[in-house]
Design a protein around this nucleic acid. Structure first.
Length: 895
DNA sequence: CTCTCCCTT
């Protein structure tokens, strides 16, 4: 390649810049702007340096171009038929929306079409998938079709695994990875194309990315964006990406699916003996639908959608009792042990009835399904801004979701879908499922936006803007964590929190743990809270699992369960082979995969912390404690546990991230949580049978009740120091304290309505100086309950006493002026900030020296204090001494 | 006396 020629003028270099790698273009452009060509020659070092850099970038692009393999398509796939059109549209438009059903081949073919359109040279073609497994299998498939080993031309990256090389042309990844990359490279300069696949799923990651990309397109006019989605709601995407009046083209690609017959079979209702209309229960409805299908075809596999594990178990029970011939019942849900999940992919001689949660709707594709039974319900997660808790209500699925379920049986042959509701019911349902961004807490998204300086959240181009109250709640949560200040600005701690790849509240625990010297312990717990529960339990193994897990339980806290388990497992992990480790997991009812993720996440956190300058030390030594047997006697068995001292430090750290999750025991079973919520300890908790006064809940989720999972016993006094910005103080009964010479009061503190401190004695002066000043003057000075030797005060007191004595003597209490007048006298002359004896004396002593006239004015006079003068004759009637006949004189006191 | 699913610097 020829070297770059010295230009006649600067602008001659611009076409060349467009050939450079996208990642270099910006810096090259900027350094070019700084060069002054009137001062430069071909031999100038500044020019030579620039030209060399541009040269390297051009060569890299050239190298990449040479690596583009020969592209072939499977012409049986519907996308392949539209290849020419798509290549043209991608060349001519910045954004293209492609709609296609499953079986259209869009996911695997579009990245290849992009290559053919000349993309992937100046930067990678980035292709996102919602799930890790999909990222892996999609990249494997494309690599195979391009005849290149995985990790060369095509690679993939998911959490904990990066199989992409600098020279790779296509990078498949989860949308979470791309979102994370934005934080290090706001302009996504390593890509020249971004494909967002499955955009119709509208996960929070996808919605956030679509907003970021919309902003980015204005700055990276060279970037191509392709949105692919099922054939629903494509116009919404086109509208979102309409820039300067230019609407992106929408291309529809047909799917390759088989017809599915739709049958509506609403649950029957009947009248009971009392004449009430009763609806048939869902399980019977399902069983009847299976009978209907069995009558027509006793062999085709059936997929039944259920809302949860419990319903699956119930339905399985009913079906088993029906003794269906040649039938195998297979439960399926995400929490199921891996080996049990694998059963779904094994074909069987028998007809299979798969009872599944929503995993089978999108996440898992079960081969060979002929029939679908859809009760039309789903358990969905909704964050309630009002009660600040996550709820898991059962709701009717949307039309889009019902159609997706129906499509699960038309993949290999014709199918039948039975809906357990009628057509009118279907038509009355919402068209689309509420996108996740409308259903989840926004703290994480808002924190990322603050960190990236993405501007006003209210004005961010979300495809569907979240409600203002939910945005405000996100700000509130981040303020609670101390990640944002009251003006919604990122705090230094917020910056640290944002840098950790975990939920902000969990990240806060970690940041706090560093201050408390228990970072090693808390990252283990934080990682455990961030992955799926490593316990592998189902209905049948429940009892045995509980016994096995009892070893790791700690009566103080469920969080310590994780630490104990870690302590045990880490030791084994270092010494056992992978095979033996798998077995160990199995016998201990643990998921090997999740235990591995737990370990990997802990390591990842350690690395992230290192980057923000925090070093993770060793785990604190476990103390040994003798177990107490049922008779209350210390047994020979020794239990290892974290010392109380370390446990307190750990839980204080956890508390910092969970200030809204403290609860006080209310009655025998329930607890009172923040904002007067009533909650219950989840039966899986080690604290379920204990009745501590205060608990800290790892999470609060409302299902049948509001349940607290992962709980710890806490000392409520820890809250005060951590929640200074949240607690509310109230003061009662302010009073003068003679002995201390200060104003005291009783202080009560609440956090979200919970009584953290009640009637604690406190020094009231600094809290309410105005009121304390009044009390000081009234009780200390006027009533004389101040013991001070300051001259004017001693004098004034003596004077008052003298007059009082006079009143007693004369039996006429009308000489001394009202207290109110004395109060005014002092109030006018003593500075407002004086409300205690020490402050009073310090001020007076100084004033005596520096401003004696000020002190002089504080000497009361008889004239001021006396309402009237006592007449001489009156005084004679009440002598101070009495002379008894020819003897002694006595002093006389009058009372 | 028991919670759907997915993702990360």
């Amino acid at each position: 390649m020829n070297s770059i020629l010295f230009p006649a003028q600067k602008n001659d270099l611009l076409p060349l810049l467009d050939q450079c790698m996208a990642k270099d273009q910006f810096t090259l452009q900027r350094s070019l702007n700084k060069l002054d060509f009137s001062q430069l020659t071909e031999e100038s070092p500044a020019w030579k340096k620039w030209a060399a850099k541009a040269q390297r970038s051009l060569e890299e692009a050239q190298q990449r171009k040479l690596r583009v393999p020969k592209i072939q398509y499977d012409m049986a796939l519907p996308v392949a038929a539209k290849k020419e059109l798509l290549v043209e549209l991608i060349r001519d438009n910045q954004v293209v929306v492609i709609a296609g059903e499953t079986g259209s081949g869009k996911t695997t073919q579009i990245p290849k079409i992009c290559l053919e359109a000349g993309q992937g040279v100046r930067g990678k073609i980035g292709c996102t998938q919602p799930r890790r497994l999909a990222a892996k299998s999609v990249s494997e498939r494309i690599a195979e079709e391009l005849g290149s080993p995985l990790g060369e031309v095509v690679g993939y990256q998911v959490r904990f695994l990066d199989l992409v090389k600098a020279h790779s042309l296509i990078k498949v990844m989860t949308d979470g990875i791309l979102l994370a990359e934005v934080q290090n490279d706001r302009f996504l300069t390593q890509y020249d194309t971004i494909i967002i696949d499955e955009a119709h799923e509208r996960s929070i990651n996808i919605d956030f990315l679509l907003g970021i990309l919309k902003q980015l397109l204005l700055k990276r006019t060279d970037l191509k964006v392709i949105i692919t989605s099922a054939t629903i709601d494509t116009q919404r995407f086109a509208e979102h990406f309409t820039l300067n009046g230019k609407r992106p083209p929408v291309v529809e690609v047909s799917g390759r699916t088989f017809p599915v017959e739709l049958r509506y079979r609403p649950l029957a209702s009947y009248e009971d003996d009392a004449g009430n209309v009763v609806e048939q229960d869902m399980t019977t409805g399902i069983a009847d639908a299976i009978d209907e299908l069995s009558n027509e075809d006793p062999f085709g596999d059936v997929l039944v959608f259920q809302v949860g594990e419990r319903d699956i178990k119930e339905t399985a029970e009913v079906l088993r009792k029906r003794n269906l011939k040649n039938t195998e019942i297979v439960p399926l849900y995400a929490r199921l042990a891996m080996s049990d999940q694998q059963k779904v992919f094994q074909t069987s001689q028998k007809r299979r009835i798969i009872l599944s949660t929503n995993v089978a709707e999108t996440s898992l594709t079960i081969p060979g399904i002929k029939y679908v039974i859809d009760p039309g319900l789903v358990r969905i997660s909704r964050y309630s801004v009002r009660s600040k808790v996550q709820r898991l209500p059962i709701e009717k699925i949307s039309q889009a979701s019902a159609n997706q379920r129906k499509g699960r049986c038309g993949r290999v042959s014709d199918g039948i879908c039975i809906r357990l509701y009628d057509e009118a019911n279907f038509n009355a349902r919402p068209e689309f499922t509420d996108p996740e961004i409308h259903r989840t807490a926004l703290s994480s998204v808002i924190l990322t936006m603050a960190q990236l300086n993405l501007g006003d959240v209210q004005r961010f181009p979300f495809i569907e803007k979240p409600a203002d109250k939910s945005i405000n709640d996100g700000f509130r949560q981040l303020y609670e964590l101390g990640a944002l200040d009251e003006k919604h600005r990122l705090t230094p701690e917020g910056r640290q929190i944002a840098k950790l790849p975990i939920d902000p509240s969990v990240a806060k625990m970690v940041v706090e743990a560093e201050k408390n010297g228990v970072l090693a312990e808390v990252i283990v717990i934080a990682a455990a809270l961030s992955i799926q529960d490593p316990r592998d339990i189902n209905q049948t193994t429940m009892q045995a699992a509980r016994v096995a897990h009892k070893l790791f339980e700690d009566e103080r806290s469920d969080f310590l369960f994780f630490l104990n388990l870690w302590h045990f497992y880490e030791h084994q992990r270092r010494h056992l082979t992978q095979n033996k480790l798998r077995k160990l997991c199995k016998t201990n009812f643990l998921s090997y995969m999740r235990m591995r993720e737990w370990h990997e996440l802990t390591v990842q956190l350690e690395q992230s912390l290192k980057r923000i300058g925090m070093r993770v030390g060793k785990l604190n030594l476990f103390e040994e404690k003798r177990k107490i047997n049922k008779q209350g006697i210390a047994s020979d068995e020794v239990q290892e546990r974290l010392s109380d001292l370390h446990s307190i430090a750990v839980h204080k750290s956890l508390l910092a991230g969970l200030l809204g999750n403290v609860a006080m025991r209310d009655d025998d079973k329930s607890f009172l949580g923040a904002r007067s919520t009533k909650l219950f300890i989840h039966p899986s908790s080690a604290l379920f049978k204990r009745k501590p006064k205060w608990v800290l809940a790892g999470e609060l989720i409302e299902t049948t009740k509001l349940y607290a999972r992962n709980n710890a016993v806490i000392d409520i006094h820890w809250v005060e120091g951590l929640a200074k910005h949240l607690i509310k103080h109230s003061y009662s009964d302010p009073h003068w304290q003679k002995k201390r010479g200060q104003v005291g009061a009783y202080e009560s503190i609440t956090l979200y309505g919970l009584p953290i401190v009640s009637r604690r004695h406190c020094n009231y002066g600094p809290i309410n100086p105005v009121e304390a000043h009044k009390i000081f003057i009234r009780h200390g000075l006027v009533e004389g309950q101040l013991f001070s030797k300051i001259g004017f005060f001693v004098h004034n007191q003596a004077l008052v006493h003298k007059i009082e004595k006079l009143e007693h003597k004369l039996r006429r209490p009308d000489f001394l002026v009202d207290d109110e007048l004395i109060y005014q006298f002092y109030d006018e002359r003593i500075p407002k900030q004086i409300y205690s004896k020490p402050a009073f004396e310090k001020w007076a002593k100084r004033a005596e020296k520096e401003t004696p006239e000020q002190i002089k004015a504080l000497y009361l006079t008889e004239a001021y204090l006396m309402k009237q003068q006592a007449s001489a004759s009156l005084l004679q009637d009440f002598p101070d001494q009495v002379h008894l006949s020819n003897q002694l004189s006595f002093d006389v006191d009058y009372h």
